[in-house]
C-alpha cells in the first residue's frame, strides 16, 4: 500500500465542522417544509378548481403550478443535491447549458416552426 497519512482534526476545526453541519441541517429542514407547503398548495388549488370554487380558473392554476414546479426543482438541486455548496461550478455550467439548449429547441418549435 502507499503511505497512508492519518489526519487528526483540532478541537476548533471539529467545532466548526459541527456548526456547519448544524447550519446546513437547519437549511435542509426549512427547505423541506417549504417544499411540502408548495405541494399542499398545488394539490389544494387543483381540488378547488375541481370543486368549482370561484376565482380558481385554469389560467391561474396552470401557470402557478408550473412556477411551483420550477421552484421545487431548484430547491431539490440546490439544497438536497448540494449544488449551493462550493465545487459544483462545472455541473452547474453543464446543466444550464443543457437547459438553454432544450429551451431554445422548444422555443423554436413553438414560435417559428409550427405556428
Amino acid at each position: 500500500m502507499s503511505d497512508v497519512h492519518v489526519y487528526k482534526k483540532s478541537p476548533a476545526e471539529f467545532n466548526l465542522g459541527q456548526r456547519r453541519a448544524r447550519k446546513s441541517m437547519r437549511g435542509q429542514i426549512m427547505m423541506f417544509s417549504l417544499m411540502i407547503f408548495l405541494t399542499i398548495m398545488s394539490f389544494s388549488m387543483v381540488m378547488a378548481y375541481q370543486a368549482d370554487v370561484i376565482g380558481f380558473s385554469k389560467y391561474l392554476i396552470i401557470p402557478t403550478l408550473m412556477l411551483f414546479a420550477a421552484v421545487q426543482v431548484g430547491l431539490q438541486l440546490y439544497y438536497f443535491m448540494h449544488m449551493n455548496e462550493k465545487g459544483h461550478g462545472i455541473p452547474q455550467m453543464f446543466m444550464y447549458t443543457g437547459v438553454i439548449f432544450a429551451f431554445v429547441v422548444v422555443l423554436t418549435f413553438l414560435t417559428i416552426v409550427w405556428w
Binding site: 447549458t97 439548449f101 431554445v104 423554436t108 417559428i112 416552426v113
Partner: peptide, 24 residues
C-alpha cells in the same frame, strides 16, 4: 460548439418550415 446546436433546420429548408424559420 455552442452555435452548432442552433442551426439544425438548415438541413430542412426545403421541407416548408416557412420564410421566418428559414431566415432565422
Amino acid at each position: 460548439g455552442f452555435l452548432g446546436f442552433m442551426v439544425w433546420a438548415h438541413h430542412m429548408f426545403t421541407v416548408g418550415l416557412g420564410p421566418t424559420a428559414n431566415a432565422i
